[in-house]
């Protein structure tokens, strides 16, 4: 089983997060049939946890202890890598399903069109453009982590790609073997010892946590202040910017919902996300 966990809709989305949600929800209402919308809504309403399913014909049978019971098989005092703080698991699971449906009915069809309409070289230009903007976030967080050498490398990379790469549409920096980093405020907090906190599944963005979620908001606010594309004064640019950002991010993310074939995919993704973030912070 192969799990690629550059999981999944990346931190890039931190830009103008509330705007994105509005955009997607209107897009959803316009494009999809009523049944889709209501089924998406249904995932959030699926609250009945205790009711027994109707397994005919023995409808009178009561819930029995399973043959292999966790109380018997799993020792309490063993630290299990699968044990990740997830007090909101029912809500997170519902959001995971919601994201999967959103992916299936909205994002993936849109990407099909995107890849048909835009030739490969244009799409790679879009990817480079957003990668270049990501370096602003990375550089700021490297400074906050007191890593001046890396921040300088990231700054050099950003300048190279913005000038030689014509606004970041090309990526000459990689050709010059300039290192590419990826830092965000969640990692900066982790760098200074802040624990990950409870696991969270964010609508649209996917796996996150309390610390990383807060980090995302901070990154978003900082970038909105800098506003490198001057979106505040040129609101028209947003109409191209946000859809392209969403399409490019999803198209370059190698993750398929329920692609593992495992009934434990939620747990596996949660574990791998937690491990990856631990490693990202050390890195």
């Amino acid at each position: 089983m192969t799990l690629t966990i550059n999981a999944h809709l990346s931190r890039r989305f931190s830009w103008h997060y509330p705007l994105l949600v509005c955009l997607l929800s209107t897009g959803c209402a316009n494009n999809s049939a009523n049944s889709t919308t209501s089924s998406l809504y249904g995932y959030l309403q699926d609250t009945d946890e205790t009711q027994l399913e109707d397994f005919s014909p023995e409808t009178t049978r009561r819930t029995a202890d399973p043959l292999y019971n966790a109380n018997r098989v799993v020792l309490d005092d063993v630290a299990d890598p699968l044990d990740i703080s997830d007090p909101l698991e029912p809500l997170n699971r519902a959001l995971y399903s919601f994201n999967a449906q959103l992916d299936r009915w909205v994002l993936m069809p849109a990407i099909g069109v995107y890849q048909k309409v835009l030739p490969r070289f244009a799409r790679s230009g879009v990817t480079n453009f957003f990668d270049n903007l990501d370096d602003i976030r990375t550089g700021i967080n490297q400074l906050l982590q007191l890593r001046p050498k890396r921040a300088l490398q990231t700054g050099g990379r950003f300048l190279t790609n913005t000038t030689l790469g014509i606004g970041g549409l090309w990526d000459p920096a990689s050709r010059f073997n300039m290192p590419k980093y990826d830092e965000d405020f969640g990692q900066t907090l982790g760098h200074y010892g802040v624990e990950a906190g409870p696991y969270l599944v964010l609508p649209l963005f996917g796996p996150s946590g309390l610390r990383d979620g807060i980090g995302r908001i901070v990154d978003t606010a900082v970038l909105a202040q800098i506003d490198p594309l001057d979106l505040t004064d040129h609101s028209g640019r947003g109409y191209a910017y946000y859809p392209l950002l969403i399409l490019d991010t999803r198209a370059t993310t190698a993750f398929e919902y329920f692609g593992t074939g495992s009934p434990f995919e939620y747990e596996l993704v949660r574990m791998l996300y937690a491990k990856k973030r631990e490693l990202d912070i050390v890195k």
Binding site: D46, D65, P66, L67, Y68, V73, E89, S97, Y266
Partner: peptide, 22 residues
């Protein structure tokens, strides 16, 4: 009723980490 208690309804939102551990 092998790992999951029989007649325990498993829904999309049901926690199941302990089932994976077993």
């Amino acid at each position: 009723g092998f790992i999951k208690p029989s007649r325990q309804k498993l829904r999309r939102k049901t926690e199941r980490s302990h089932y994976l551990e077993v």
